[in-house]
Every structure is written in structure tokens, then in C-alpha cells.
Amino acid sequence: MERKKILIIILIIGIACLILGPVLGFLMNKITVSDNSVIPVSISEASSSGIQDAHSIPITLDKGQKAIIQFAVYYENITTTLKIFGLGVYNRQYALNSAPTGLTGRNFLYSIFAYGQSPSSSTFSTNSRSITEDGFYYMEFAGDTNGDYLISVPGQYVIVVYGTNSSPTDTDVLFNIKVEVDGPGTFLSSLFITIGILLLVLWVGLLAYAYIKLLRRGI
């Protein structure tokens, strides 16, 4: 009876791990750093002449970790630009209140998701991306790039967004941005699936052993 209970518990835990693995993997795949994908961020036009007025999002990246930035503008008269700086460069320019327009950011990738086209021909590397009135960009950043591939350079970085409003009456610059970094989802998923498979193998083994023991009458 006890053995039967243990077998049932092992089976339930094994199946639970196999189900939990992909679910946890999906939920923990990305960690949201900042989410303004619905409610837009509002900054002043002065952001293009002084970095202190620009919108900044600090991120920390480990080795092999990357940031996903979804950057969009859906508002009339507005032009916004996104650049990424290392924390050292940003702090120095912040102290000087330099104009971000003259600064060179670090390289990142952006994709245009052209359906049917080879992914390598619809991904580009750049150090700044601007949107005027309407547009959306899906960007990836890990420190640097080599062609269309990311290079992982662990460290602290700051995503800076600045812009202008060409309206004669309005000076607000609106945009939407969502920043996520890689989470432990893949690791957790693999871990749970491995545990689940091992438990099921153990269950089958114990069941086979019990069955053989039951049948055994001495050859």
C-alpha cells in the first residue's frame, strides 16, 4: 500500500514538473524592467538639447543576457530618437547636460519582421533609431554588435529617449516604450522538464521492478 502511494506521488510530481516546466519557462522568459506600452511617456522638447530632460531607463546586463526594447510612437508632430549609452558615458554627459543629438550610442539590432523574408535580411544594426509620428521598432541589445549578431558585453547601460514636437503650440513629446531583459525562464524550463523526465523514468523503473518481482518464480 505504501509502495503504491509512493509510486502515485512520483507519477504526479513527474507530470506536474513536465507541465510546470514550459509554463514557468514562458512566464519567466523575460523580466520587465519598464512598461509604458499602453500609457505613453511624456517628456519635454528640451530633451533634445539637454540629456537631463531626456527619458532614461537604466539596465544591467550579465554575460549572455540581452535586453528587448519595444519602442513606438503614434502621435502627431512628434519625432523621437532612442540611443543606448554605457553608464560611465551617460553619467559624464549628464553632469555636462550635453545634447544627446551629438552623442554616439552603442550598437543594437532592430528587426522589421518581413514575412517570408530570411530573418538575417530583415535585421539591422544601428546606434540610434528615430520615429516620426508613427512607427514601431523591436530592438535587441546586449552591449555591442558584429554585423547582424549581438555581442554580449556585461555591464550597466542607460537607454535614453529624446525628441521634438513640431507643433507651434505643444512642446510635449510622447512615446511608448517597453524594456525587458532575459530572465531565468529557459533554465527553469529545462530544469523542471529534466526533473519530470527523471521522475517518470524512476516511476517506470520502480513499476517494472515491482512487476518482475511479482512474476518472479525462480527461473
Binding site: 540581452k66 539590432l109 519582421f113 518581413a114 530573418p119 546586449a142 549578431y149
Partner: peptide, 12 residues
């Protein structure tokens, strides 16, 4: 990738 579920690096 084309559906925008993940980017180029994840694709690679």
C-alpha cells in the same frame, strides 16, 4: 520570428 514572437537573436 516573422510573427514577432521573438527577435533575431532568439531566432539564431
Amino acid at each position: 520570428y516573422w510573427n514577432g514572437v521573438y527577435g533575431y537573436t532568439d531566432y539564431v
